[in-house]
Amino acid sequence: MSGISVQGLAKRFGARTAVEGLDFDVRPGEVFGLLGPNGAGKTTTVRMLTGLLQPSAGEARVWGHSVRTDGEALRRVVGLLTEQPGLYERLSARDNLRFFMKLHELDERQVWPRARSYLERFGLAGRENDPCGGFSKGMRQKLAIVRTLVHDPKVIFLDEPTSGLDPESARTVRDAVAELAAEGRTIVLCSHNLAEVERLCTRVAVVKGRLLAMAPVNELRRTGSALEVKVEGEAERYVQALSALPFAPNVLAEGARLRVMLADEAQAPDVVACLVGAGARVRSAVPAQRPLEEVYLELIREGRV
């Protein structure tokens, strides 16, 4: 069975619950985002899915291997890029890769060409024999990505691949991930960076100790909607009246424009009626898509701390 299926997965460290009640599936070839703030339990989840931590409850299967009982078989089919690249700095790039080839009991001569083709594509060709202690952060991260690929894993877990990188290196790493996605690889990407998830992922789960939402990225953006209203004069003066509505929508005023966040489109007539009642002359009222950031922040606020 291919793909990943997660049911009721939870992890507790002593009395503290890192994450609980996780349910999701990842289809083969999909780039699945785990989006959430620091401490949301992303790393813990990935550690459970790669057999590093035993779940406290629930079950998950990765390419048919149970994370509870098939640890060794599981680790043969997954590749994990950890939050820190974790390279052996005194060893050359090549020896770092060779070590993992040996751990996977692979024949170096057979797998080296593939590793080298990735090194070339990620701009690391020619540096194979240099100790990677001298590499820049971006280079290290890309080498670590190549390391997660030496055994041609069925699924790769990328835990915050661009955090701590300068914008330039972050972009080259993102390009590298996009290349892997284009190859049709199955990827689980952890991130607290919305733009990154938006660019790379097809589907996203928002987590914060538990699953807050899960949807294709462009659908998530449509979760809830907004109404963009143009009035005559300063829009600012109607904010108060709108906030007094029973469903107390979030309102942004800018010049003659009002942006009113709605949980439901059915609230739109009430908004217009309220404005008219407050003496506003409404020029236009059009539905708008909420920026993903807004949806995300709202989900996170609702989520448990």
Partner: peptide, 14 residues
């Protein structure tokens, strides 16, 4: 200390 243990433990090595 150097954070190399986690990638190592994510390999099949026991």
């Amino acid at each position: 200390e150097r954070r190399t243990l986690e990638p190592l433990l994510a390999s099949p090595v026991t």
